[in-house]
Amino acid sequence: METLLALMVGALIAAAVYLMLARNVLRFLFGLILISNAANLVIFGSGGLTPEAPPLIAYGASAPPGGVANALPQALVLTAIVIGFGLFAFALVLVYRGYQNLGTLDSEEMRIAEPRE
């Protein structure tokens, strides 16, 4: 499964980079979503893949049974998902506001601050 996960991450990153290089900022935004997902998978996968054993401690026990999934990357990914969403939401509003004011979604046309000479 490690190989498949690596392939998935590669595919996600490739699609994300391609989208982020587009002139349409909406596509950039889609790329942002994909790259966030890819990053989360990278963190998750780096902690090792352990099938079907969530890091839970049974009642009466003081430690989980051996061989449960790595809890640390899960905690990190949880944080990362939420932060990624915050970033996405803000960027979306920025795109929306940009379109309201500038009337375009083409980043090459957004030249208020750095006019073309």
């Binding site: 998750f44 893949l49 352990t50 099938p51 079907e52 054993a53 969530p54 999934a69 899960q74």
Partner: peptide, 10 residues
């Protein structure tokens, strides 16, 4: 992916 590798919360 999260579900099958033991991360239901995530």
């Amino acid at each position: 992916v999260f579900i099958i590798f033991g991360a239901p919360d995530v």
